[in-house]
């Protein structure tokens, strides 16, 4: 758990080395997965289609399984059609638009991400500077993550709702709770990453503790901060989605998932799932982009 961020960054190296050799294998595997998906759609949807119309056979049956209204497994083109229908063909402010729901989710997850980052960085700075905290607080931060935080999601939302706090803040709180951990841990690592020689140099300059922090520890910790960001942004989205489930929230991707499961709208579930995945990919890429720009401006050679 503690080193969650570390392997992710070490993984980059072999991937980057093999470079252009990745595209073909990735596309091949994705292609295989799509083929398997279509085959599985036939297999899983066939019993019900045969029940509906026992005369179906051959290609008619195959097409029927790919176009069922409430399939057990919708075929990929049905999901894409649903996404197209609920993004491009409806007004963006309408409640039927997936973009609207995605926006609801992303706004609370970003707010949570910001709060979690703030708390994580402050905690890490405190832990690095106060020795007592390192021994007393750090174990509890680690233990806090063995608690299934998401299980508390309904409580936080109900409790805050009953004292009149509704909207995106309770969901953001769940995201923040999930976020602060990877950031705190990677920042503790980052702030302690300057070695003894560099710290001694600051001492010979007669730098105060604050100056050492601002001029040495903080800049040294930036790469670690981004490693934490990458983990945190992904789980902040998960937190927001799960936060939308328990109270029967009206909007958001989590609410779409829940509504879809209540009414048996499988295509809607899959569309929401794809949208959430796209969102996660977009957020992680945005963090990676910010990392590249920041490190370049700080003078790190690629």
């Amino acid at each position: 758990m503690m080193s969650e961020a570390a392997p992710a960054s070490t993984l980059k190296a072999p991937a980057a080395r093999s470079g252009e050799g990745q595209t073909v294998p990735v596309l091949t595997i994705v292609g295989c997965l799509i083929l398997i998906w279509y085959a599985a759609a036939i297999w899983l949807n066939m019993p019900f289609q045969l029940q509906l119309n026992p005369e179906l056979a051959g290609m008619d049956l195959v097409y029927a399984t790919w176009a069922a209204e409430r399939p057990v497994l919708p075929s990929p083109h049905q999901v894409l059609a649903e996404i197209w229908k609920t993004t491009a063909l409806v007004d963006i402010t309408s409640k039927r638009s997936l973009f609207y729901h995605a926006w609801v989710t992303i706004s609370s997850s970003l707010l949570g991400f910001a709060m979690g980052t703030l708390v994580g960085v402050l905690l890490a700075a405190a832990i690095v500077h106060v020795r007592a905290l390192q021994k007393s607080l750090l174990p509890w931060i680690i233990a806090s993550q063995t608690i299934p935080i998401l299980a508390i999601a309904p409580i936080i939302i109900v409790v805050l709702g009953s004292i009149g706090i509704t909207g995106i803040f309770p969901k953001a709180l769940i995201s923040a709770y999930l976020c602060f951990f990877p950031i705190a841990i990677s920042m503790v690592k980052g702030l302690t990453s300057p070695d003894l020689m560099q710290l001694d140099l600051m001492r010979t300059y007669n730098a105060s503790q604050f100056e050492t922090f601002a001029k040495l520890r903080w800049p040294a910790s930036v790469p670690f901060l981004f490693a934490g960001f990458k983990v945190a942004i992904a789980i902040s989205l998960v937190g927001a989605i799960v936060g939308e489930m328990p109270t029967g929230a009206q909007a958001g991707l989590g609410a779409r998932l829940l509504a879809g499961s209540y009414y048996g709208q499988t295509v809607q579930i899959w569309a929401a799932l794809f949208m959430a995945s796209g969102l996660a990919a977009f957020l992680v890429m945005a963090v990676a982009f910010a990392e590249r720009v920041t490190l370049k401006r700080m003078g790190v050679k690629p």
Binding site: A8, L11, P14, A15, S18, G21, Q22, P25, V26, T28, I29, V30, L150, K230, A234, L237, V238, I241, V242, L253, L257, L258, G260, S261, T266, I269, W270, A272, L273, A276, S277, A280, A281, V284
Partner: peptide, 22 residues
């Protein structure tokens, strides 16, 4: 390996919990 690892890295960042209703 070259095909699965990028996919695995990508999927690890996804909100997989969403498959629960399915």
């Amino acid at each position: 390996r070259r095909g699965l690892i990028p996919i695995g890295n990508f999927v690890s960042a996804l909100p997989i919990i969403g498959v629960a209703p399915i």
